[in-house]
């Protein structure tokens, strides 16, 4: 009767995580003039060419697809910053606070929809480098959570998991709930 514990309900799919990450606010530089948008999820704009404005990621991607803006890559998404974060993460058991909660999803969305927007300055070597750095950070964090959870005896019951180990931790939650103790 393992099905009764309902794991399939309690986990977010990759698509749902992406949906959540799409609400993160990002800077764009519009190249059109448009009145402010009074949406259910908030008011955004006005949009004026060459003037930076902040919108949710989904809105940025929608405008980008139509060639109506360029997306300003977040500062943390540069080779320099990511290398720094990776080094910090390798040196300590703590997780760096320099990355947003949904860094994996945000970077994936930007790679998929705004790759040509990510200027060379951010991609000193190549976009592949940024991508592999993000994967490395993810692996390091995954390992940390794994180490944290190894000391988990099922009775202490709370383990401190800093920041955005979303999918990885979810995976642990799933394994733990399927086979407790």
């Amino acid at each position: 009767m393992a099905g009764q514990s309902n794991h399939e309900l309690s986990l977010f799919s990759a698509e749902e995580l992406e949906f959540i990450a799409e609400d993160e606010i990002i800077d764009i530089v519009p190249n059109l003039k448009m009145d402010p948008l009074c949406l259910v999820s908030g008011d955004f704009g006005p949009f004026t060419p060459q003037i930076v404005t902040q919108v949710p990621l989904w809105l940025a991607i929608a405008l980008r697809r139509r060639g109506k803006c360029s997306i300003v890559p977040p500062q943390w998404m540069s080779v320099e910053k990511l290398t720094q974060v990776l080094e910090e993460e390798r040196d300590s058991q703590e997780m760096s606070e320099h990355l947003p909660f949904h860094y994996v999803e945000i970077s994936r969305l930007l790679f998929d929809h705004a790759r040509d927007n990510i200027p060379d300055a951010y991609m000193l070597i190549s976009p592949v480098k940024v991508r592999s750095l993000i994967e490395d950070i993810r692996d390091v964090r995954f390992h940390k959570v794994e180490t944290d959870l190894e000391g988990f005896n099922g009775f202490t019951i709370a383990v401190k998991v800093i920041s955005s180990m979303f999918l990885a931790v979810q995976w642990f939650v799933k394994v733990w709930n399927v086979a407790p103790m």
């Binding site: 799409e22 259910v40 809105l59 929608a62």
Partner: peptide
């Protein structure tokens, strides 16, 4: 109205409906 802004309103609506 500008079809672009209409489609953005529609997207926002769809997300909320979801």
């Amino acid at each position: 109205t500008d079809p672009l802004s209409v489609s953005l309103y529609q997207m926002d609506l769809d997300r909320t409906l979801f």
